Amino acid sequence: MQDNKRLLSLDFFRGLTVAAMILVNNPGSWGHIYAPLEHASWNGCTPTDLIFPFFLFIVGVSIAFSMSGKRLQPETHGRTLLKAFKRALILFGLGLFLSLFPKIFTDPVNALAHVRIPGVLQRIAIVFFFSSLIFIKSSDKGIFRTMIILLFVYWALMTFVPVPGVGYANLEKETSLAAWTDRTLLTEAHLWKAARTWDPEGVLSTIPAIASGLFGVLVGLYLKRKDLSEAVKVSWLFCTGLAAVLLGLLWDLQFPINKSLWTSSFVLYTGGLGTMGLALCYWIIDVQQYTRFTKPFVVYGVNAITVFFLSGLMPRILNMIKVTGADGEEVGLATWKYQTFFVPYFSPVNASLASAVVLVLTWMVILWIMYNKKIFIKV
């Protein structure tokens, strides 16, 4: 493969991940969801729990492909990192906007007083910037060492440092060091509204999330190697991914796999699965050139942040428009659509799923048109 050739399998894998993210984030009813489309209640890992770490892993792979040339030019490092910082600020700002909308326009004082500061886009922003910084300023071995240090430092903090006010280290929702850090630094008013005492995208757990990004950086660097055949690359990626999964499962015995805490075992387990998933896509799509099936997800992949942001914004906008529901009460337009077109024709759980699937297909049509018109919105 030529060094400057776009990795179609990466766009496909990114698009598949984002489409899955939209599917699980937009059920017709949060009270009716198939188990695989829900997050694990605490410890453990469902298919849904794989989506966000896969995206951070992909962020890392993309960094390795997009910044490699600039990494070799020390005189451009400052400009490169400034550009990365600006992009991270935009991503962080978009995440805050989703948290504030629409209350920022109707009750700005209360909205700002209770805005959730952490979030998905906010974590993507932080992981992107620090992964870029480490990539630009470190050697390949330095990146690997940094990833390992982050995983072990977080493990040590979470399992050995006594939690103030609790007196002992623990991995519970409200009494862990991560929860205490979130409450102390951000205050309860600015945490996840479903809990307010901890946040699944909190401060301390962002440390191992950066390691997820670095995992992807290392995989991207390996894929870019020109001294190995494609078959050797794929074989080693599968072996490395499998080894990471097994190490994650082994570490799970002492430091449980947990998405909300983003435990070190979770990083290894999901990074390993992500590596094997990307290796499979790479072999089929870029090496064997089977590409006919890729476009539905490639259109998602090349406008990933755009569709994720808009898919979160549109339901809020639609529910600002009030209409009379089937029971005679006033509901938001998005709720009315679900009650009118899905609830009467499916069982509750299938109605919820059908609504989400239709949303994914609707965005696919829009993104397909954008792709054909070469409209790619870069953040």
Rank of each mutant, 00 (worst) to 15 (best):
L121C: 02
A156W: 09
K226N: 13
M21H: 02
L7M: 14
I63R: 02
I321C: 10
L273I: 15
P53S: 05
K224Y: 00
P47C: 04
G165D: 12
T270Y: 10
V358F: 13
S131C: 02
T146D: 04
F346W: 15
A113M: 12
W283P: 05
I148D: 01
I104L: 07
T340R: 14
A334D: 14
V115F: 05
L221G: 08
L89V: 10
F215W: 13
A189M: 09
I148M: 11
Y300W: 12
W283K: 11
W283R: 12
E75C: 01
V127K: 00
M147K: 13
Y154I: 02
F97W: 06
F309G: 05
Y282K: 11
L218M: 11
V166W: 02
W236C: 08
E230N: 14
L82F: 13
Q2Y: 06
R87V: 05
P36F: 08
V153Y: 01
W192Y: 14
T340Y: 13
S138D: 01
G15N: 04
K224Q: 13
L223I: 03
I134K: 04
M1N: 09
A156Q: 08
F13D: 02
L150F: 15
N258G: 07
S235C: 10
F293C: 06
F55W: 02
L10N: 04
E172K: 15
P348I: 10
A179F: 06
F342I: 04
V343H: 06
A334Y: 10
I369C: 06
H77Y: 15
F144W: 07
V360Y: 11
L280W: 14
T240G: 15
R292G: 10
Y338S: 09
I126H: 00
P162C: 12
T106G: 08
R292L: 12
K193C: 00
L81Y: 09
M314Q: 09
E75K: 12
K374Q: 12
F57M: 06
M147Y: 01
F308T: 12
Y282H: 14
L150T: 07
I305L: 10
L150S: 08
V127W: 10
L72I: 04
I149W: 11
P47Q: 05
W180V: 05
T340C: 07
D227K: 11
L171S: 03
R123K: 00
V307K: 03
F376H: 12
K193E: 09
L367E: 11
L96K: 12
F144T: 12
I124S: 02
V219D: 02
N110I: 01
V217W: 03
S66E: 00
F54E: 00
L150M: 13
Y154C: 05
I143T: 11
N43K: 14
S212F: 08
L112F: 15
A194V: 08
I366P: 04
Y300T: 02
R225K: 10
R79S: 15
A156S: 15
F293E: 00
V234R: 11
L94V: 03
L359P: 00
M276C: 14
S212L: 13
A189P: 03
F152H: 12
R14H: 06
Q288A: 09
L353D: 05
S29I: 07
K137A: 13
W30K: 13
G202L: 10
P296F: 01
L56W: 03
R183V: 10
V234D: 00
P296Y: 03
A111W: 11
C45Y: 00
Y168A: 10
P53G: 03
V349W: 10
D49P: 00
G277D: 09
T48Y: 03
